[in-house]
Structures are given as structure tokens and as C-alpha cells.
Amino acid sequence: DKATNPSNRQEDWEYIIGFCDQINKELEGPQIAVRLLAHKIQSPQEWEAVQALTVLEACMKNCGRRFHNEVGKFRFLNELIKVVSPKYLGDRVSEKVKTKVIELLYSWTVALPEESKIKDAYYMLKRQGIVMF
């Protein structure tokens, strides 16, 4: 909540790194974290969603394979797909948030080729015309 608080004036890296540390400490950290992050990323408040995406990116860089495995499941990827798809939340979500989600997905297809479901999700969005370029 503190790492994504809409009243933060700017991204609060103390809390963001604290969230990453907590994931690394706990056995079920990645599973719990992705559920919390999916909820924040779908926030109707743009700034809360943007901060949640920054936290997600930080976790991908700092929480290792256990976290990558969890993000690389359709269970989580589907929550990101809902954000960009007009069939779900896409019409109500800002372009900024949608662009960031697509940029993250693309960056992981390059950085984590072993997480094949990320590629499946990204190329499905491309085929459906939701990712244009």
C-alpha cells in the first residue's frame, strides 16, 4: 500500500525496495505479491497503477527466478491482458498505463525467453491488434 500510495508525490524507492525484500524473505512471497500487484495495476487511479507497474518492474529485476515464474503464469498475465483489452478494462484505462503494460510484456519476451507464456500472451495481443507496434 505504501509503495503504490496515490498520495505519494513521487515513486518511493524505500518502500519499493522494501516490498522486493519482503518477497525475497518469504516462502510464498512471489505468489502473494503478484496478487497484490495485479489488484493495484487495475486501479482506476492512474498514479496508483503507474506506481504498481514500477514496483512490478523492480521486482522483476530484484526478486529472481521465483518471481519470474509467477509472473510467467497465465494466471497473472491474464490480469495484465485485462488492463489492455477493450473487452475487459481497456476502455477505462489510460493510454499511459496500457503503454507501460505492453512495454513491460515486450521487454520480458526479450529478457526472459525461457518464460514462454509471456511470449504467448504478447503475441496473442499482437495477433488481436491490441499491440500495434
Binding site: Q31, F74, N78, S85, K87, M124, I130
Partner: peptide, 15 residues
């Protein structure tokens, strides 16, 4: 304590 490792997943959404 023994932790249950959840390896389950769902299907990819269709948009």
C-alpha cells in the same frame, strides 16, 4: 512448517 508450492495455472484469456 511445510509450504504448499502451487504450480497450477489457468488458460490464456482470449481478447
Amino acid at each position: 512448517t511445510v509450504s504448499f508450492h502451487d504450480d497450477s495455472d489457468e488458460d490464456l484469456l482470449n481478447v
